[in-house]
């Protein structure tokens, strides 16, 4: 619905969590009963460190081999399958809340990513992707003559 560009967001980094939370609440108010769609999964947090962005997402129970992380230009996409449990004969389920199914999410970053230097780690169900900026895109210091 209302999505802030990351460019504008980074200036207010201290109050960001509060603002984002408020925004989510607003979106929830205006969208239908707070339902999310598969484009919003997984939820991500984005951090900045030494000019690189770090994207973290909670994606429990996914085979890392079946996760598909690609970067093109300034767009990061995360795709995978969080399958529902399948039941064998003689098993009955009493509750089923897990399993999102197929998901794919594209995230636009505020800079061109150095695709060769991207690192992804998957630990304890948390995905962490470090995305360094491409060198040509780094801010250049301009000397005053």
């Amino acid at each position: 619905m209302f999505n802030p560009g990351l460019w504008r967001v980074r200036r207010f980094s201290n109050v960001m969590p509060e603002i984002m939370h408020l925004q989510q609440e607003m979106n929830r108010l205006f969208s239908s009963a707070g339902q999310k769609n598969p484009q919003d999964y997984p939820a991500v947090n984005i951090w900045e460190k030494n000019g690189a962005s770090i994207v973290t997402a909670e994606v429990p129970g996914i085979d890392p081999e079946k996760m598909d992380i690609t970067v093109s230009g300034d767009v990061l996409s995360i795709a995978g399958i969080a399958l529902k449990e399948t039941f064998e004969k003689g098993e009955t389920y009493l509750r089923q809340e897990r399993g999102i199914g197929k998901f794919k999410r594209n995230i636009q970053l505020p800079f061109q990513v150095d695709a060769k230097a991207v690192e992804a780690r998957y630990e304890k169900g948390i995905l962490m992707i470090t995305l360094p900026r491409i060198k040509e895109d780094l801010p250049k210091k301009i000397k005053i003559k």
Binding site: V9, R10, M16, A43, V44, W47, E48, K49, S53
Partner: peptide
């Protein structure tokens, strides 16, 4: 869940 020396830019969860 904080990352050392990193600043949060955007948060969904």
């Amino acid at each position: 869940g904080r990352i050392n020396d990193a600043t949060m830019m955007y948060s969904e969860y």
